[in-house]
Design a protein around this nucleic acid. Structure first.
Lengths: 333, 333
DNA sequence: ATTTTTGTTGCTCGCGGGTGCAAAAGCATC
DNA sequence: GATGCTTTTGCACCCGCGAGCAACAAAAAT
């Protein structure tokens, strides 16, 4: 129990159980052709010897690693923590290991995908808003990964699978909610203005709002997906603006920007939320529920999305999935 | 370039470069005995063929996986995101892959360590406050992992290495700062009261404070390491208490508890921070710097700690390390 | 009792590359 | 040109396990 050899192989167990190495392998394999007696004997021997199959050797021989790479380059958003928690937990219980690959912004995606493919991951899951579709496309061309899933973000990238919250439904729910509450002059506050597909929420909201009310929605862009950038942008917009030309609600692309917007309104501009200006977010990060913010937001169906991911990994799902989330009305509207 | 075979092996490159398979391996190995000419030829051939060494096969043959397992069971604290970001980024640039293992609270640690050892990780790094030392000890006995590092937490576990911020210096700095500012009636707000070593900060602070002032420090325990539990605990403590019996500062075990304390004071009790009660935290999470909180806190030297971790992985460091952090005075004191 | 079916077990070969040594090649000196 | 030394290269063997088939035993059918 104490001095057991660190490397117990299937051969050792086979010898101890009086069977062949392959019978040992079968004992550890669900639905294998093996007698109950033999399996019990093997498992008992494995137990006493402290044997556990070597997944590395197994992967090498079988071409299945049971490993999923989670690739992200954006750790500034607390929502990532929620995503990581759900992903690693549910993947783990389903028998998948997770290789976390951090892509710095300066790298191109191919380095991350290369690292993943070198470890023979069965799939790579990209989470994070800062990935460019075109970059991903070229990286994918260079490095073959069995499956590439874009998670919690829109993408039109051919050859990849998208699992995301349905932004169209989401933004309409938000717009309907705001119209119900009587708001009429929204401003959309988005992250950095790049040419990729990530600004889907902005266009969806502005188009729907215009269709319903006939009035266009001005849009702002923060310099980054963090609250400091949002604070700066909102302060710059409203500083010195008279109350009657102010928007009555700031519709934010995600919670972390919304939090920044609220901070700017309260701390830098001396305005009240929602009495002077209302705010909405997106993601429902834990902070949104705190008494200090009580942010009206939209919750992505992360559990359902992860279940879909598991189906993709199992091979039973091969098309894009967009799932509806849920509006969480709180105190900021 | 488009239709390249997904599995280019060293043999293919060897054939293309007109050398043997082993020369190919040498070309990819730093400090290998190989002529410059041969290496160039091999690398060129590898480039055109799109070859990259298979790390799985490499690990199997060499007994080094270049993989580190990061084991955690606590995703509710944003500080984990900071730790994860730093760890994965710095490990990645140093050539290490990171296997993220999420341990649910109900599991014992051995399942996580088993998963890590099955993938032949070169080391396992435990981050997270909810790990019990005794649990770890038994798990370590059962499953041999080459190196086990306890990161950002105190531990007396034999057979493991601890890399952490020096809590003794830290709590003294905080105490000195509070005494300088004139605070005299602190209350320590900690996380759940368990028997493990995790409450080192509490005992360090209370002992030092008593030594300097002669007065004991009352201590509270929230039911969990999150702000909701802290809100509940602080509200329960202060609700209905008259101003003269109130503490003048809440010293919190970490930022997320401090944030909860502030929310309780402001939103539930109508008190001002720091005029009515001051608050200090620990970790310096991003939220602590936001204008809404401006939390006085203590920053752990995460980068330096991670550098020490790299030394441990490289084998050049084999003893515990406790590094001093830095007090970040802000508006809540 | 013999043949067929079914279930179980053992084995050959290979996954892709590393280790350590021996052969080969390069180089300088006498 | 021979000798001794160093650098470079090739090779047998191994890492631990899996796919797929062949051999075998047990159970069922004839």
């Amino acid at each position: 129990m104490d001095d057991l050899n660190d490397s117990v192989t299937a051969d050792d167990v086979a010898a101890a159980a009086g069977v062949s190495r392959w019978t040992v392998a079968r004992a550890f394999k669900k639905d294998a052709s093996i007698s109950r007696k033999a399996r019990e004997r093997v498992l008992a021997a494995a137990e006493t010897l402290g044997y556990a199959p070597d997944l590395l050797a197994s992967s090498l021989a079988s071409d299945r690693s049971n490993l999923v790479a989670i690739i992200t380059n954006d750790f500034s958003n607390p929502h990532k923590l929620v995503l990581l928690e759900r992903l690693t937990r549910m993947l783990w219980t389903a028998g998948w290991g997770t290789l976390l690959v951090h892509m710095s912004d300066s790298d191109d995606a191919s380095a991350a995908l290369l690292a993943a493919s070198q470890r023979r991951v069965d799939a790579a899951v990209v989470i994070g808003t800062r990935f460019d579709d075109t970059v991903l496309a070229t990286a994918l061309g260079a490095r073959r990964v069995k499956k590439l899933v874009i998670f919690a973000r829109y993408s039109q990238n051919p050859g990849t699978l998208t699992i995301a919250c349905d932004d169209v439904i989401a933004m309409r729910d938000i717009a309907d909610h705001l119209l119900d509450k009587g708001y009429r002059r929204p401003v959309f506050l988005a992250g950095p203005d790049t040419q990729s597909a990530k600004l889907h929420r902005k266009s969806t909201f502005t188009e729907y709002w215009q269709a319903r009310t006939g009035t266009p929605v001005p849009a702002l862009h923060a310099d980054a997906y963090d609250s400091a950038a949002a604070i700066e942008r909102v302060t710059r917009l409203l500083d010195g603006q008279s109350p009657d030309q102010r928007p009555d609600v700031l519709v934010c692309e995600n919670d972390i920007i919304a939090i920044g917007a609220i901070d700017a309104l309260r701390c830098h501009l001396g305005l009240r939320v929602p009495q002077d200006i209302a705010v909405t977010g997106f993601d429902d990060i834990p902070l949104a529920a705190s008494p200090a913010y009580q942010l009206t937001t939209y919750r992505q169906p992360i559990t359902a999305m992860t279940e879909k991911l598991l189906e993709v990994l199992a091979g039973t799902l091969t098309h894009d999935v967009h799932l509806p989330g849920r509006l969480i009305p709180r105190g900021t509207t």
